[in-house]
Design a protein around this nucleic acid. Structure first.
Length: 410
RNA sequence: GUGGCCGUAGCUCAGCUUGGUAGUAGCGCCUGGUUGUGGUCCAGGAGGUCGCGGGUUCGAAUCCCGUCGGCCACCCCA
């Protein structure tokens, strides 16, 4: 009997995981710079947190949740996203005093049919900017996601931006779009017809009905004064810091808690149906929905699995500073002692774990991408080592006491 | 959830139409050509219950059914 990872889940092993380690470092550094503290929440929550937070009419809640009863009969759900958890945590902690900025990173779970860039366990890095209704918060969050992709070498990213207005704007718009869709009922797909009553705005991003909906009224043309002012400020703010964006009036997103600003990052070179590498928006009503005091918020989530697929740095392995090779069995102890000293001085160093032919050790070093091979032979007794550069084959004698400085200086 | 394509060595894949019991394939791996030296080259070698289960047949990688998994589109979103 052999086992495999469950459908839609992946093992991420070296050397592929080198990218993940790097992405995690980049993310942590970025969030620290931007002033976002770390938030850790449970991987499962009371099912109601998501059912209410994400919204009962959403695809995610209707059919994608990993829900189970624990031994005491509580209904729990593996988090399909983390915003609802973070908001729940803040309410539990007593609410947000002034502004509160936090970041997270971890696995999310949705029961879907897997595809490239779409898995049942997938990874998101995200931030939440809570307690501020200012468009400046939107701009900062959007910039952070943009910089993340930039630092990971994701090229040709299109930032798509839209505003779906305040709840009152949307209620008015809903009647307009409903009327439009009803007139064209016969031309629409089954899915879209079903949405006319439940969630007509969602028909806008249907691929099957793209033609029918091409000249449909859009939410951004039905914004109230306040939402319009807010949206203008977000766009101006992005312009001011040199982040290009395109207005996408058909961008609506599938979670109920969004209002006003919504956005997605789409790497244009990434050829797959699951094209959004990240996205987010404003969710000013979410605190009330989860039983808290009215508190505005804006956030984003970046899809690490998809970013990896689009990242220029994928497959790049980190270099080893030195590989220590022993000339024969009796030199293993000396080799180990040197490895220990070089590592203590901060270098990345590897060696064999038993004596092998020198040839085999060089091959090993080459495979690992070592810059230098340090040969430990009889010269070791005189305090010397032979150092060969694998890049150009140049070889020289270096005193052991200067070795780490010498390698560092190269 | 719906429709389609696919599953042979560690990886990429040929063979499947016309069933006869797997390939000098490429890459990778190991050893040797150097008694203390890689990446090139040459020689040799290891490695596969042909995803799994069942059926048809004297005989199945090859045909049929089921199942698991992957991919693509829809859907949905990260």
């Amino acid at each position: 009997m052999t086992f495999r990872a469950p459908k839609g889940t992946n093992d991420i092993l070296p050397p592929e995981s080198d990218w993940w380690r790097e992405a995690h470092r980049v993310w942590d550094a970025l969030c620290e710079q931007f002033g976002y503290g770390l938030v850790l929440t449970p991987i499962f929550e009371d099912t109601e947190v998501f059912a209410r937070g994400v919204g009962g009419d959403t695809e995610v809640v209707e059919k994608q949740m990993y829900t189970f009863d624990d031994k005491a009969g509580r209904s729990l759900t593996l988090r399909p996203e983390q915003t609802a958890s973070v908001v729940r945590a803040q309410i539990q902690a007593g609410g947000v005093g002034s502004r509160f900025k936090c970041a997270y990173w971890g696995p999310m779970f949705r029961y879907e049919r897997p595809q490239k860039g779409r898995y049942r366990q997938f990874y998101q890095a995200g931030v939440e900017y809570l307690g501020s209704a200012s468009p400046e918060a939107d701009v900062e969050v959007i910039e952070l996601g943009y910089r993340f992709l930039e630092r990971l070498g994701v090229e040709n990213v299109e930032l798509r931006l839209n505003s779906i207005g305040d709840p009152a704007d949307r209620a008015a718009y809903r009647e307009v779009i409903r009327a439009f869709l009803n007139e064209r009922r016969d031309a629409l797909s089954e899915d879209s017809v079903r949405r006319i009553d439940a969630n007509p705005m969602r028909v806008l991003d249907s691929k099957a009905d793209a033609e029918v909906v091409a000249d449909a009224p859009t939410p951004v043309d039905h914004l109230g004064v306040e939402a319009q002012t807010h949206f203008d400020a977000v766009r101006a703010g992005l312009d001011a810091i040199g982040i290009p964006s395109v207005l996408d009036p058909r961008l609506v997103r599938g979670l109920d808690y969004y209002n006003r600003t919504v956005f997605e990052y789409v790497p244009l070179g990434y050829d797959a149906a699951q094209s959004a590498a990240g996205g987010g928006g404003r969710y000013d009503g979410l605190f009330e929905v989860l039983g808290g005091k009215p508190t505005p918020g804006v956030g984003l989530a970046m899809g690490l699995d998809r970013i990896e697929l689009a990242s220029a740095q994928r497959g790049r392995t980190s270099q080893l500073d030195a590989y220590v090779a022993s000339i024969d069995e009796s030199r293993r102890t000396d080799a180990r002692a040197l490895v220990s000293r070089l590592r203590s001085s901060g270098l990345k160093v590897e060696t064999a774990d038993q004596h092998r032919s020198v040839k085999a050790q060089f091959k090993d070093a080459d495979r690992l991408g070592a810059r230098f091979v340090v040969v430990i032979g009889d010269e070791f007794d005189d305090g010397m080592a032979t150092v060969r550069s694998l890049a150009d084959g140049e070889q020289r004698s270096v005193a052991l006491e200067n070795l780490s400085e010498w390698i560092t200086s190269q």
